[in-house]
Design a protein around this nucleic acid. Structure first.
Lengths: 112, 112
DNA sequence: CTCCCATACCTTGCATTACACGGTAGAGGG
DNA sequence: CCCTCTACCGTGTAATGCAAGGTATGGGAG
């Protein structure tokens, strides 16, 4: 029900996960699922977008327990983008929190 | 360009602003604009949604410098919802930050 | 051998929501 | 009369998360 909150942050989360090491979509879902809810239907289109932006590149690796895995690596541009996104994210969190604090005082009836 | 980040937070921001005192859409835009970018085209549909959820109620007040103003007040349900949203927001921020920190260590070549 | 499950890939269609753009209308100044 | 500021509103578009469904590989259960 709070899926709207994720809009725009998943890209950053995936890039961050990839900064910790190469991975593939199916695994990324389970990695991120440890901290937040994500579904496959979100992941695959997302990875396509990241690749279209040239923030990641791919290579195939055969698996002994199923189909080949499509691994993703951060490109230099991807690393740069991650830094940028983190800055925007923290700035945004600060903005929202400042709005929340604006209200906090008066909400309890403290008149001035 | 980071409009996606706002998805789902504007409702909360508006409710928070109203917790500090009744207001009308046009004014809410300028209030929130002090902390973040919002446009009128966003505000009016948003207010209708909040009202449809019964989180706010309205009353008209004539103005000496233009058309009548449609003021919005938080309902009891609105106050409750604000608290809920704030909890979800902080939880979400924590989740995202934990993902970001996951990557932080290894990104610099610290091989555990 | 067959069936099923876990792995791993992918697509289509839907819902939500922020915003640009455009339109209406009152009050006051040039 | 026109223009600006205030203040309201609607339509259509873009972005994106997700449910649901589809394909294929490999191994274990029956």
């Amino acid at each position: 029900m709070k899926t709207q909150l994720k809009k725009g942050t998943l890209d950053m989360c995936v890039l961050a996960a990839l900064a910790a090491g190469d991975s593939y979509a199916y695994e990324l879902v389970s990695i991120l699922s440890r901290s937040m809810e994500v579904s496959e239907g979100t992941m695959y289109p997302l990875m396509r977008r990241l690749q279209a932006e040239a923030w990641v590149s791919t290579y195939l690796v055969e698996s002994a327990s199923g189909p080949s895995r499509k691994y993703y690596t951060l490109t230099a541009a991807g690393r740069q983008q991650l830094v940028l996104m983190q800055q925007e994210w923290q700035e945004f969190v600060g903005d929202v929190n400042s709005v929340l604090q604006l209200a906090a005082g008066r909400a309890k009836g403290e008149s001035a």
